[in-house]
Computed example of a mutant assay.
Amino acid sequence: MTEAPEELAFLEKGFFPFNIELNDGGIISYKKPYSSGRQLNIIIEVSGMQSNVTVEIKDGQSILASISNDEVDSIAFQTWGDEQVIRIYLSDSNQDFLVYHNPEPRIFFGELP
């Protein structure tokens, strides 16, 4: 089963549960609002040994970015200097999936050399 931070870790980082009705079906979702009006959404679907993760950055009703991956091995909070990220470890070790959540939301998904 995929390793992911407990709900308390998300709450301590300023995330709030949302789409509670989905959480009974193995889907866990969190949102983090920003003073700019943007919102970072993380949806984790736990199924078997790996999980699916979708990350969205929204501005009002518009989705500015959305990335999904279904080969997630683990999820961890990390801090690099002044930036806080969620690193999503994938079964394909040649890919890097980072979700920057503080101070501002952004997503990096790329191939490693």
Rank of each mutant, 00 (worst) to 15 (best):
E3F: 14
A4N: 08
P5S: 04
E6F: 05
E7M: 10
E7I: 10
A9M: 12
F10M: 14
F10V: 14
E12S: 08
K13H: 15
G14R: 09
F15S: 06
F15Q: 07
P17S: 03
N19Q: 10
I20V: 15
I20F: 11
E21L: 14
L22V: 05
L22I: 07
G25H: 11
I27Y: 03
I28C: 09
I28M: 12
S29V: 03
K31H: 12
K31P: 04
K31C: 12
K32I: 10
K32E: 06
P33G: 03
P33K: 08
P33S: 10
Y34K: 09
Y34F: 15
S36I: 04
S36M: 01
G37D: 06
R38H: 13
Q39T: 11
Q39R: 13
Q39W: 02
L40C: 05
N41Q: 09
N41S: 08
I43G: 07
I43L: 13
I43Y: 06
V46A: 01
S47D: 13
G48Y: 02
M49Y: 09
M49W: 05
Q50L: 15
Q50M: 12
S51V: 00
N52R: 10
V53E: 03
V53A: 03
V53R: 00
V53I: 15
T54E: 14
T54P: 00
T54Q: 14
V55P: 03
I57F: 09
K58G: 03
K58Q: 13
K58T: 12
S62R: 15
I63G: 02
I63A: 02
S68K: 12
S68E: 13
N69H: 12
N69E: 13
D70T: 11
D70M: 10
D70P: 04
E71Q: 12
S74L: 04
S74G: 10
I75C: 02
A76I: 07
A76K: 06
A76T: 01
F77M: 07
Q78I: 14
T79C: 04
W80H: 13
G81M: 09
G81S: 11
G81W: 10
D82P: 04
I86S: 00
I86F: 01
I86R: 00
R87V: 14
R87Q: 13
R87A: 11
R87W: 07
I88R: 00
I88F: 02
Y89G: 01
L90G: 07
S91K: 13
S91V: 10
S91C: 06
S91L: 12
D92R: 12
D92Y: 04
S93C: 03
N94K: 10
N94I: 08
N94S: 14
N94C: 05
Q95S: 02
Q95K: 07
Q95F: 05
D96F: 05
D96E: 11
F97M: 04
F97N: 02
L98R: 13
V99T: 01
V99N: 00
Y100V: 14
Y100E: 06
H101C: 11
P103G: 08
E104Q: 11
R106Y: 11
I107C: 05
F108Q: 08
F109I: 10
F109C: 02
L112Y: 01
L112V: 14
